[in-house]
Design a protein around this nucleic acid. Structure first.
Lengths: 347, 347
DNA sequence: GTGAAAGCGCTAACAA
DNA sequence: TTGTTAGCGCTTTCAC
């Protein structure tokens, strides 16, 4: 591992000159010729700065702490983390992820992260919830991911729940469905509210309009399956917007028992896409994929821009199907990732 | 953030004495009384060592690098990482995870990790594959997780594939099933080989014996579903061992179309448990859960023991249902995690 | 037994 | 325009 000292000796200048040049602070301070020679030997020797030593001086580590619940239990976390990682690595940062699943250790994890000198934090709940960020984070830059700050004081990156359901429902309408059901979640969550509103808005613009009796909010397992079954009996829907994979499965199960084929007899649009569904239900199922990767990527960009206190170049951000949101919005800012659509049309 | 200097001043000793005491190198070098006072003020001030400064001297960072594919696409990764994190945090380490999904960036990620001074690496493929560890890792401690070293030179932690299928099949036999099918994977992988062997061994100990025509290896989507459907037609199995969730779903779909109910008309044991299945199929489905958490935990213990060059205390490891494997085995060592069983009996 | 001092690799005042 | 110098917090040798 080559050091600045070696470069300095080899070039015949002092370490500080090398430092200036290599940190791009040489404008008008170091002779262009010397600067060039320094840069040359640096690349010759394959110089890479030692982040630890740098951190010791600057107390900036270029390490980001990612705090989340449920990393272990959802397949989504990975996408978010991957996106955050990509963005981080683009800007020369690394991620340390800790998850607090089922443990009361959040505070000690945060303390550990602080000791390692992270420059800022992601605070993530998987699947858009209201979150209360621990006070121990209050003197650090923080961005919420797939979550909304209870105090509405911190920037967050979230999916555009309304649009997810609005677009998906519109798609079913265009496909000619006449009795479009909403299979949702009876738990109280942001996603449920936003999506139900989007579904409703899409239908209210049409002849069929919004019909409460086509809304079926369920939890899980047997009771959920029975509720969907009852909906089939009473309203015989020909189109389904499903809150998530599990809800889509109830529809599939009921359809199979009735000899109905998805994509022919009924149309189903589901949100998200567990791997298992990609292997089984596709391509009959139309899926609306949440842009987890983009959420992570955007959040990292936002966090880094806060840390470095300069606007980031939004042109480099990966795009979803939606227009780019305003980026340098003041804090608190909610940045809505829009949806990604995948799969064939329902019918 | 209190420093050693502050402790030294407050106690009226020098920094070096503080260092000696706090690093437990004071035996016979520092007066017990002084040592006690140092320790006292340290706790009074809530002293936590600055890992960065320490690293600069020792070139040990107590950071572990976790390299994996597919973090984004499987829900399993989370469990492994969580386990590794827990173990790491128990021993005062942190994890930096990088994933190399669909990117040619592996080498640059490794280089970045090295620059951050990681003490060792996890190299993980999700779902037990033969892996070739990059040569750039060869001068570091490395442990493979859910993967087998192609050169058989590195320690690895893997599930006990044979036992997974042996136990699951035995369970179906005990439940009285007489035509037990194996719904497997037609891709060539360690897990497939091991599990098929386990299934076969369990059946060969019984009257029904092993019957090739009950083995159905499939890939995905329509073709897979049709193959399972054909198996239903030709052999009418009453018990199923399913390689994974997707395979279990094919069985469910076929059963639903025939009006059969799982847990009553047929018995199904599936490996793994995506969250979506826990919400839908349980408790009818018997699941054999791979011990991802334990794999991560054990791997971290192994890696740390290599780094610190001392045996770890295996008594603290989380247990699965299997007996503890020999731990201080010389390298190369394969440490087999056994399975965890969950869910109700099939019938 | 204890402390002074050097130095890990780098940055940033300040001098020259 | 460049170099000297003084640390960042910690470990470690070597005098005392």
């Amino acid at each position: 591992m080559t050091t600045m000292k070696e470069i300095a000796e080899k070039t015949g200048v002092s370490v500080s000159t090398v430092s200036l040049v290599l940190n791009k602070r040489d404008a008008g301070r170091v002779k262009p010729d010397i600067a060039r020679r320094v840069r040359q030997t640096a690349t010759d020797l394959g110089y890479k700065p030692n982040p630890l030593a740098r951190s010791l001086r600057t107390s900036k580590t270029r390490i980001l702490g990612f705090i989340s619940e449920e990393v272990a239990t959802t397949p989504y976390a990975g996408g978010i983390i991957l996106g955050a990682q990509d963005a981080a690595s683009t800007y020369g940062y690394m991620l340390i992820t800790v998850s607090t699943d089922g443990r009361a250790s959040e505070e000690s994890e945060i303390a550990a992260l602080k000791r390692y000198g992270v420059d800022g934090f992601f605070y993530s709940k998987m699947s858009n919830r209201i979150a209360t960020v621990p006070k121990s984070l209050s003197d650090y830059p923080v961005v919420l991911v797939d979550a909304t700050d209870a105090n509405n004081a911190l920037p967050s990156v979230e999916p555009d729940e309304f649009r997810i359901a609005f677009d998906a429902t519109s798609r079913l309408i265009e496909a000619g469905c006449e009795r479009i059901a909403y299979i949702g979640c009876s738990e109280n969550m942001i996603a449920q509210d936003g999506r139900l509103a989007g579904y409703r808005a899409a239908l209210e613009g049409t002849d069929q309009g919004f019909d409460e009796s086509l809304v079926c909010n369920v939890l899980n397992n047997g009771p959920a399956l029975r509720a969907v079954n009852a909906l089939f009996d009473t309203r015989n829907p020909d189109g389904f917007f499903c809150f998530n994979d599990a809800r889509a499965w109830y529809v599939y199960e009921c359809a199979a028992r009735r000899g109905l084929t998805v994509g022919r007899d009924i149309s189903v649009v589901g949100v998200d896409n567990h791997r298992v569904f990609a292997e089984t239900l596709e391509p009959q199922l139309t899926t609306v994929e949440l842009p987890h990767y983009e959420m992570g990527y955007w959040a990292a960009c936002k966090l880094i821009s806060m840390i470095e206190d300069k606007p980031v170049d939004t042109a480099k951000w990966p795009r979803t199907t939606s227009p780019m949101p305003p980026l340098d919005a003041p804090i608190p800012a909610k940045i809505h990732c829009a949806l990604i659509e995948k799969g064939s049309v329902a019918r």
